[in-house]
Amino acid sequence: MADPILEVRGLNKSFGPVHVLHDVDLTVYPGQVTALVGDNGAGKSTLVKTIAGINSLDSGEILFEGAPVTISDPSDAAKLGIEFVYQDLALADNLDITQNMFLGREIRRFGFMADGEMERKARETLTGLSVRTVSSVRQVVANLSGGQRQTVAIAKAVLWNSRIVFLDEPTAALGVAQTRQVLDLVRRLADQGLGVLLISHNMNDVMEVADRVVALYLGRVAAEVETKNSSVTEIVELITTGRSGNLGLAPATANESI
């Protein structure tokens, strides 16, 4: 297996008296989809926001390609090539696909925007992701379907030679066909060598698209399993009780957390 591209070690995070994340270890490998699962309130979004630099961390370290890094705001993450697709997408409906993909990072020539170049790069990126559902990169985002919007948000994240992409519940609001498209896209990102971290509540999606699953139980990593050696039942048990067979937290820890 390749060396990890991102490693989180012993991360702790409290909001005042509430200790949300306990000694969390997380590893993301290039070319793999790592799924982060856990019940509501387990701390998944908090973990991602802490890595993104939106939350500060209390203790623990983050290693990028083996070297320790400090990420104190989202632009630090962007500089390292770590991109985040949040669940509410944040696209400007009145702009077209190209304009959205380059928003805040427009290419300029002689002080004016180089629209042609941006359009070409947007199309290249979408082609590279084998996106076939968009008929024009000059289409206004307001007219896109949910799946297409998700596609644009993901393409926006990978436009910048990103190395790692975090996706927070990218299929939560989608129908069957569109979920299919987005999952295929997620898989292709990993196949192109990116490290992908996917948060999802849908175990079928996780089993299908992820290589490894990290189960979070009340702010602790209950277990990390490979999907091919695991099952939906086992993962669901890890999510709901923190343990499954001889996997997971020691009974004492699991009960203490409650």
């Binding site: 989202p74 632009s75 509410d88 997408l89 944040a90 400007a92 009145n94 304009q99 928003l103 805040g104």
Partner: peptide, 18 residues
């Protein structure tokens, strides 16, 4: 462009670093 983006979705503009 940033003016249009802000008018269309201020939160998206903010997250895009505008």
């Amino acid at each position: 462009r940033h003016l249009f983006a802000t008018g269309g979705n201020a939160e998206a503009a903010r997250r895009a670093g505008i």
